[in-house]
């Protein structure tokens, strides 16, 4: 038993060590306001959680599906088949030297990396509402952990791509080494969008319904099955740059395809613009997320 009396309204001095120096607390909890630091150190401390959650997503993805990993292969193949048929055969859009199917497949590969990260990252908070309201951890871990399952899918599709290139007898050039750079930038861009969308989705579930529509529109508005320069050339004079400026994904998709297939007319100015845009959007998304995350547990 301790000899404590009711402590109501007692103003106590801070705890003091025998030596007379106030003891350092392990943690101080206070209300905060304004912008918060990203606190990467804390995310690093929780890296095991990040990995565990990422592995959970990968494992769960194909458990209790009959065809398992085959879906990862089939999805881009079917997508590329339909797109190349519509754009190349029906609409007669040129794809340069590259075979139309391969052209569309590479586009799909890059676009899927973007769209699946965006979709998964943005729904990661609402999908794990129980965790958010019951456990403390750096909230950024949730959207970041979704990247791994996208990467696994990407690796599988990339293997399929190399098999296709072998069949078409197309050898990649040295520019292939830049592929990870473009992939990284595409992921930053989609994470930037995903962080903002995810944070908004906590309060407004509309985002959940709007996002698939946006992704769907983007499939056609982005140079997935056609070359960006071809689409831009169809716009009235003077408006061509807007094709690239309004859709920062365009420059990155072009660069990605150039890395794999070579050739084509890549407009490097716009690629640089897209790259800077991706970096800034990611940072803006991360800071906005950190600012909004204080309300998550109360609102979700």
């Amino acid at each position: 038993m301790i000899e404590s009396q009711p402590l109501r309204n007692a103003k106590l001095p801070p705890p003091v060590e025998p030596g007379g120096e106030p003891k350092q607390p392990h943690l101080i909890i206070r209300p905060s306001s304004g912008w918060a630091a990203l606190n990467l150190r804390q995310i690093w401390l929780y890296r095991d959680l990040l990995m565990t959650l990422a592995l959970r997503d990968v494992k769960l993805r194909y458990r209790q599906t009959a065809l398992g990993a085959i879906w990862v292969v089939l999805q881009p193949l079917l997508g590329a088949g339909v797109l190349s048929f519509v754009f190349n055969r029906v609409a007669d859009v040129p794809t340069g030297d590259a075979p139309a199917f391969l052209f569309a497949f590479v586009g799909m590969l890059a676009f899927t990396a973007f769209s699946s990260t965006l979709t998964k990252a943005s729904s990661s908070l609402v999908g794990n509402a129980q965790l958010v309201s019951k456990v403390f951890f750096p909230r950024l871990v949730l959207p970041l952990s979704t990247v791994l399952s996208t990467l696994v899918d990407f690796a599988v599709s990339l293997t399929v791509l190399f098999v296709l290139m072998l069949l078409y007898r197309i050898a990649p050039g040295p520019q292939l080494l830049l592929l990870p750079l473009w992939l990284g930038l595409i992921l930053l861009l989609s994470l930037g969008c995903g962080l903002i969308a995810g944070a908004l989705m906590v309060s407004y579930r509309d985002v959940q319904y709007v996002l698939p529509v946006v992704v769907n529109l983007l499939t056609f508005a982005s140079p997935v099955a056609y070359a960006a320069s071809f689409a831009a050339s169809k716009l009235p004079d003077g408006l061509q740059p807007f094709y690239f400026i309004l859709n920062p994904l365009a420059g990155l998709l072009e660069a990605f395809r150039w890395s794999v297939l070579g050739g084509g007319e890549v407009q490097w100015g716009y690629v640089a613009y897209s790259s800077v845009f991706a970096l800034l959007l990611f940072l803006a998304g991360a800071f906005a997320f950190r600012k909004m995350e204080r309300k998550f547990a109360d609102v979700i």
């Binding site: 607390p25 101080i28 909890i29 209300p31 905060s32 129980q130 456990v135 403390f136 204080r294």
Partner: peptide, 27 residues
């Protein structure tokens, strides 16, 4: 106390590593 939500006013000092268990089997 478990840092899930922030206080509006005031301050908490914790002298030690905190583990919290608000629900059995979270996650």
């Amino acid at each position: 106390l478990s840092q899930i939500t922030e206080p509006t006013k005031g301050e908490i000092k914790l002298y030690g590593r905190v583990g919290s268990l608000l629900e059995v089997g979270t996650g």
